[in-house]
Design a protein around this nucleic acid. Structure first.
Lengths: 234, 234
DNA sequence: GCTCAACTCGTACGCTGTACGACAGATGAC
DNA sequence: GTCATCTGTCGTACAGCGTACGAGTTGAGC
């Protein structure tokens, strides 16, 4: 094709020569582009990110972005993965229960995505970046160390992944605005006789998301590796 | 605020008078619009649905759609809900295990969404239509009937919902093309030393999606309402 | 001084959703 | 009969989008 061979490798911008010119505009770089994209996504939402706006914020022309980035999809990929980095807690896993480790990682995962609500609705259609793979790896290692059978390992990893994805996406899409909330409540009480159980349990109004998340996570972990002492309920 | 008061109520198109004119074009109606939208989404994907294309397929002008529909978002809402209708199986639940009921409904749910892959990535940002609410209601009723405590009910419903959402979205986004698949495999073996557990368990290459889904669902249900006989593994 | 690569950016194209207003045909009032 | 009104269709236009293309600028190496 033309010049340009790039496709999201790391980049060093030319020194941005501090000699002759003004040289205070730090010039474009992949890092700045991604950071600004995240900023824009955070403040303006998913539709708020346009190449022109992004370039504006960077003090550059729209087409300049395309030197560093293949296309808009690529910007999404990079922004998403950049937001999902995970630092394991300091303690070695020997001092902690494996269950604690999983819960910590998964809750942190959810927290990351809720901090950047666009990430949840983006993740489904994006490729797996290194940070995401890292989390999956960690999850697998921990479960495996916890004695989950190899035959159950993938199902265990995926079910946790699915759970986090589902929970985060749902959460992100539910509390968008008070207007929506009021409308939902209205519609619900209108239809309360058609959906008596939902109405009775106040499913759509309950806003203890964190508690529900934790509880469901416990259900799932109980299923993956049953706790010996867990009593049968009901 | 001109004429037009509509907002997705049911509609009867005017008789489409079979008298004087040609009268073979069935004329526009909400039902035809939604059905055609689903068709278009199925064949062309989410970006393939544009108001102009939709109108073309219906033999109408683009702006005519707006008499029946508020805007494009509305089309998405209607298409999504129309695809998620659920018919309960014939047997009364008395003859079946509650667990069977839940599994049946949840697997059907997943099947519906996989049949229309766009639905998974759409659902997160859409309002809850009557068919979706119906499924939640059924889920709640069944769990409640199975003896799940009221305090656990919402967490149970949501965790199943989350699981289905996550699984479907993930599934839908993973097997898009063989190219992607090959690329992923390549990247993975490149990085096999960074992600040994994933590599070993062949997490990304395992394509028994149905089996993994069922297995994870069992984990979750075991957690929600433990089976008495389930032996501790490991 | 020249060449080449790295980088920036103005212009333009085809596409999008939809506001607006013109228009046609059927219906009901008088 | 005729006129107003309501229902429904659609052509035009506009602002905004992603990005192809090619020209322009800069600095390093020779």
């Amino acid at each position: 094709m033309a010049a340009k061979r790039n496709s999201a490798g790391s980049k060093q911008p030319r020194q941005a020569g501090a000699s002759s010119k003004a040289a205070q505009e730090p010039s474009l770089s992949l890092e700045r582009i991604v950071a600004t994209a995240v900023e824009l996504l955070d403040t303006q939402g998913i539709d708020g990110l346009t190449m022109r706006r992004l370039a504006d914020r960077l003090g550059a022309g729209a087409m300049s972005l395309y030197w560093h980035v293949d296309n808009k999809e690529n910007v999404f990929d990079l922004a998403l993965d950049s937001v999902l980095a995970y630092r394991e807690p300091r303690q070695t896993s020997k001092t902690r229960d494996w269950r604690q480790d999983v819960v910590h990682m998964v809750e942190d995962w959810r927290a990351c995505m809720l901090r950047h609500p666009w990430s949840a609705s983006l993740l489904p259609r994006r490729a797996l970046g290194p940070n995401i793979l890292g989390r999956l790896e960690l999850l697998g290692k921990t479960l495996s160390g916890a004695g989950v059978a190899d035959a159950d390992l993938n199902a265990g990893i995926w079910s946790l992944w699915n759970y986090v994805m589902g929970a985060t996406i749902t959460r992100g899409s539910f509390d968008l605005s008070d207007d929506d909330r009021a409308a939902a409540q209205q519609r619900l009480t209108d239809l309360s006789q058609r959906y008596p159980t939902i109405e009775r349990s106040r499913l759509l109004l309950d806003d203890d998301w964190d508690g529900a998340f934790r509880k469901g996570l416990d259900f799932l972990l109980d299923g993956i590796a049953p706790r010996p002492g867990k009593a049968r309920q009901s």
